[in-house]
Amino acid sequence: GPREVTMKKGDILTLLNSTNKDWWKVEVNDRQGFVPAAYVKKLDSGTGKELVLALYDYQ
């Protein structure tokens, strides 16, 4: 199956793709996968990378 990404509340993840309104593709610890968009919030990183903050645990 697809590689699952797990996250804990407060984690910072790299946002790869947010074109789908329900599932965003993120990368964390060299793993890529989809997380519910409602579970993360975009951060203003000030760099080229888009980052998101995990609002809830997800696994």
Rank of each mutant, 00 (worst) to 15 (best):
Q59T: 15
D57V: 03
S18F: 06
A37K: 05
A37M: 04
W24Q: 01
K49N: 09
V5S: 03
L51H: 06
Y56R: 15
S18Y: 07
S18C: 10
K49L: 11
K42F: 07
D11A: 06
L53W: 05
L16I: 13
L53E: 11
I12K: 05
Y58W: 14
P2C: 15
G33T: 08
F34G: 01
E4L: 15
A54F: 03
T14K: 10
K25G: 05
V28N: 13
D22T: 14
G46F: 11
K42A: 06
V26D: 00
A37V: 05
A38E: 09
V26L: 04
T6V: 14
N20W: 06
R3K: 11
L13K: 00
V28G: 07
E27F: 07
N20H: 11
E27G: 08
D44H: 11
T14C: 08
P36Y: 05
V5K: 02
F34L: 06
K49C: 08
D30F: 09
R3A: 12
F34E: 04
E27I: 11
L43R: 01
K9T: 06
Y58R: 01
W23D: 00
E50M: 14
T6E: 09
K21G: 07
R31S: 11
D57T: 06
A37L: 02
D30C: 11
A54E: 00
E50Y: 10
G33S: 06
G10I: 02
D57R: 04
D30R: 07
Y39H: 05
T47W: 09
K8Q: 07
G46S: 13
W24L: 04
G1Y: 13
K9F: 05
D57S: 07
T47F: 12
Q32S: 10
D44K: 12
D22N: 14
K25I: 15
N29T: 05
N17W: 07
D11M: 13
Y39E: 01
T19K: 10
R31L: 12
D30L: 07
K41R: 11
K25P: 01
V26H: 00
Y58A: 02
E27H: 05
R31W: 14
V35A: 02
L55T: 04
D57L: 03
G10V: 01
E27R: 09
T14V: 15
G33D: 05
P36Q: 03
K42T: 06
S18W: 09
L13A: 06
W24R: 01
D44E: 13
K8D: 02
L15G: 00
G48Y: 07
S45Q: 09
V26C: 03
T47S: 13
R3G: 14
K8G: 03
D44W: 12
D44N: 12
N29A: 09
T19S: 14
D22V: 14
R31M: 15
A38W: 11
P36R: 05
L43I: 14
N29D: 12
G48S: 09
V40E: 01
K21S: 11
R3M: 14
L15P: 00
L53N: 02
K25L: 15
D11C: 06
T47M: 11
T6L: 11
Y58N: 01
N17D: 15
R31K: 12
T14Q: 08
D44P: 14
A37C: 05
E50D: 12
K8L: 07
I12A: 02
S18H: 08
A38M: 10
Q59H: 13
E4N: 14
Y58F: 10
L53R: 07
V5T: 05
A37W: 02
D11W: 07
Y56Q: 13
R31T: 14
A38Q: 10
M7P: 00
T19A: 10
A37Y: 03
L53P: 00
T47D: 15
L15N: 00
P2M: 14
V52F: 05
V26I: 09
E27Q: 13
F34Y: 14
Y39K: 05
V40W: 03
D44I: 12
N20C: 11
E27N: 05
K25N: 05
T6A: 13
L55I: 08
W23Q: 02
N29F: 08
P2S: 13
S18E: 10
N17P: 03
N20G: 09
V40K: 00
D11I: 03
T47P: 13
Y39A: 08
E4M: 15
K25Y: 15
A37T: 05
K49Q: 12
L53F: 06
Y58E: 00
I12V: 10
N29R: 09
R3H: 14
L43Q: 04
S18I: 06
I12P: 00
K21N: 10
V35E: 01
R3F: 15
K21V: 09
D57N: 09
E4Q: 14
R31N: 09
R31A: 12
V5C: 07
N17M: 07
E4F: 15
A54S: 04
M7R: 00
D30T: 07
K21R: 12
V40G: 00
K25T: 06
L13W: 03
T19F: 09
L53T: 06
D30I: 03
F34C: 13
G1I: 13
N20L: 07
D22S: 11
M7Q: 01
K41H: 08
N17V: 07
K42D: 03
D44C: 15
G46C: 11
P36A: 04
G10D: 04
T14H: 09
G48H: 08
N17E: 14
E50L: 13
T47L: 11
E4G: 15
K8E: 04
K42W: 07
A54H: 01
Q32P: 08
K49P: 14
K8P: 00
G33H: 07
V28K: 14
V52I: 05
V52P: 00
E27T: 06
S18N: 07
F34V: 05
E27Y: 08
D11P: 01
T19W: 09
L13P: 01
P2H: 13
E27A: 10
I12E: 03
L15W: 02
G48I: 07
V52M: 03
L15F: 03
L55K: 04
E50F: 12
P2E: 11
A38N: 11
Q59D: 13
A38L: 10
G46A: 12
L15T: 01
N20I: 05
A54W: 03
L16V: 10
Y39D: 02
E27W: 10
A54R: 01
W23F: 06
W23V: 03
R31V: 15
W24N: 00
K42Q: 07
D22W: 15
N29V: 05
E50S: 14
S18Q: 09
L55E: 03
V52S: 01
K21Y: 06
G48L: 08
G46R: 08
K9G: 04
Y39C: 11
S18D: 13
K41Y: 08
L55F: 03
D57Q: 04
G46T: 13
L51W: 09
K25E: 14
V35F: 02
K21P: 14
Q59K: 12
S45E: 09
K9D: 02
L16P: 01
L51C: 08
E50I: 14
V26R: 01
T19Q: 10
V40F: 07
Y56S: 07
D30Q: 09
W23G: 00
L43S: 03
Y56I: 09
S45R: 09
A37E: 02
R3Q: 14
L13C: 07
T19D: 14
V28D: 05
G1V: 11
N29S: 07
W23A: 01
K25C: 14
V26S: 00
G10C: 04
R31P: 01
R31I: 15
G48C: 06
G48D: 13
G10R: 02
V28L: 15
G46L: 12
K49H: 10
D30M: 09
K8V: 07
Y58G: 01
V35P: 00
K9Y: 04
L55G: 00
G46N: 13
L53A: 05
V26Q: 00
K49R: 12
N17S: 13
D30G: 15
K9I: 07
I12W: 04
K21W: 06
K21A: 12
D57G: 05
V28S: 12
A37N: 02
L13E: 00
S18R: 08
A54K: 00
K42V: 10
P36D: 02
T14F: 10
L51Y: 13
K25M: 15
V5N: 03
V35D: 02
V52D: 00
Y39I: 07
F34K: 02
L43G: 02
V35C: 04
P2I: 13
S18G: 08
G1K: 12
N17H: 06
